[in-house]
Simulated assay, not measured.
Amino acid sequence: MLSTIDILARMKERLGSYYKVAQELGVHPNRVNQMRHHGGKLTFEQGLIAAKFLGVSDESIILSLAAERSRNTPSFENLARLAAKHTTNFGALASVFALAILASGELLTNPTVSSLTESLTQMA
Rank of each mutant, 00 (worst) to 15 (best):
M1C: 14
M1Y: 03
L2C: 07
I7L: 04
L8R: 11
R10L: 13
K12Y: 02
K12I: 13
E13I: 15
G16W: 15
G16I: 11
S17C: 13
Y18R: 13
Y19K: 15
K20N: 11
A22G: 08
A22Y: 11
E24Y: 08
E24N: 11
G26H: 07
V27Q: 01
H28C: 12
R31A: 12
M35K: 15
H37T: 14
G39M: 06
K41D: 03
K41S: 04
K41W: 02
K41G: 10
L42H: 07
T43V: 10
T43Y: 00
E45S: 08
Q46S: 02
L48P: 04
V56G: 01
S57R: 08
E59I: 09
S60F: 00
L63D: 00
S64A: 15
S64E: 05
L65T: 00
A66I: 01
R69E: 01
S70D: 03
S70V: 04
N72I: 11
S75F: 04
E77D: 10
E77F: 10
L79K: 14
L79P: 05
N89Y: 12
G91T: 15
A92K: 15
A92R: 12
F97R: 14
A98P: 04
L99F: 02
L99T: 12
L102E: 03
L102W: 10
A103K: 04
A103D: 02
G105W: 06
L116P: 01
T117M: 05
S119A: 09
T121R: 11
T121S: 08
Q122K: 14
M123K: 10
A124D: 03
